[in-house]
């Protein structure tokens, strides 16, 4: 999509970089900073990851810390869990989110429950990074969004930042976190989104959304690639005198109630946009929370724009386009809500 650019909000001083560079430099700094950090996954060594995120790491940090694992996701996550329980800070990579299913048991059945089942005797400070999302002709198995499959699970933290500055702050927070974090990176934003990243080490608190654009007529909550489209749509509507507030969710579990409610109480209209299908998606939880907490502050029914309820996007261009939400659809939904 033309005109995607980083959202406002990054600090004024710093280096401009893409999302993929933000992941890369943050991982690199973590390896330098903390000997307990190691990276494991398929093709993270000599190849430097399929998106070249870890390129050069093997040479710099050695095969003890940059581990090309056997092709088996259950053990990538499972072994990382054991390392984490023993005091290391492993960052496990799942090459594409679509391939996380063989590790589902390890994530949901094991990692999420270790602190609870041992009553805090053991913890699991583990980060699982994975690229997700479509719009890149990835067809059925290189396009999925997985947040809704995991956000039902207490004990897991799920982060999905969408700008370079947020990626750095939240990836650092994930590595610091004493509990397992699923860190989602929208692959369509890897190289298309650029932004300024503050210098030096910093974290962004987990569980805090960010108002990426202030507005007064409609609140939009989104994340990932959609967030950037929503910002584009909101900017286009400026010309029509429709003022849209765009909230970047950033943290999917836990979720930021305060920021969403403050905004909704101001605009009295809510649109939720996510790429994953609608039924049982993240939008359902946001809508339910707003209905519980602020129903009488609303001037219009809550609206969700989400992927269609089909198992996957297809490979053929028309099938992918039909699945993905267009910026035009967002403009239309925002305009309708504003008029309501």
């Amino acid at each position: 999509m033309a005109g995607v650019r980083a959202a406002a909000g990054a600090a004024q001083t710093g280096i401009t970089m893409t999302n993929v560079e933000a992941v890369r430099t943050t991982l690199h700094d973590a390896l330098v900073r903390d000997e307990r950090v190691l990276i494991m996954g398929e093709d993270v060594g000599a190849r430097g990851n399929v998106f070249l995120i870890t390129k050069g790491f093997l040479e710099e940090f050695g095969p003890q810390r940059i581990i090309d694992t056997p092709l088996a996701e259950a053990s990538i996550v499972g072994v990382a869990i054991g390392m984490a329980m023993e005091g290391l800070r492993p960052i496990a990579e799942i090459q594409f989110a679509d391939f996380i299913y063989p590790a589902f048991n390890q994530i949901v059945g094991e990692a999420a429950k270790i602190r609870y089942r041992s009553n805090g005797d053991y913890t699991c400070p583990l980060v699982i990074r994975t690229p997700y999302g479509g719009g890149v002709r990835g067809a059925l198995s290189h396009s999925v969004s997985i947040e809704a499959l995991f956000y039902h699970v207490p004990g897991l933290t799920i982060l999905a930042p969408s700008t370079p500055a947020d990626i750095k702050g939240l990836l650092n927070a994930a590595i610091e976190s004493p509990d397992p974090v699923l860190f989602l990176e929208h692959k369509k934003t890897y190289r298309s989104v650029k932004g300024e990243v503050p210098a030096g080490y910093y974290t962004i608190p987990i569980g805090k959304a960010d108002v990426k654009k202030a507005g007064s007529d409609v609140t939009v909550v989104s994340f990932g690639y959609n967030l950037h489209q929503a910002l584009d749509a909101a900017n286009r509507l400026e010309g029509e005198d429709v003022s849209v507030e765009v909230i970047d969710l950033r943290s999917i579990r836990p979720m930021d109630k305060t920021t969403i409610l403050q905004s909704v109480r101001k605009t009295r209209k809510l649109l939720i946009v996510h790429e994953d299908n609608k039924f049982g998606g993240v939008g359902a939880e946001i809508a339910a929370m707003v209905a519980e907490e602020a129903l009488f502050d609303l001037d219009a029914p809550i609206r969700r724009l989400a992927g269609p309820d089909v198992p996957a996007m297809g490979y053929a261009l028309p099938l992918e386009e039909e699945f993905m939400i267009s910026t035009e659809e967002m403009v239309g939904a925002m305009r309708d809500l504003a008029k309501f």
């Binding site: 679509d98 391939f99 299913y101 990835g138 059925l140 290189h142 996957a312 297809g314 490979y315 028309p318």
Partner: peptide, 28 residues
């Protein structure tokens, strides 16, 4: 295409010939 453009290339399916539909999930 038998999958009507859904599948990635090389992910064959042909029930008539006895070719089972597959995903990209290795070993699935």
């Amino acid at each position: 295409d038998r999958s009507m453009g859904r599948q990635f290339p090389n992910h064959y399916t042909n029930h008539d010939l006895g070719v089972l539909s597959i995903s990209s999930i290795i070993a699935g």
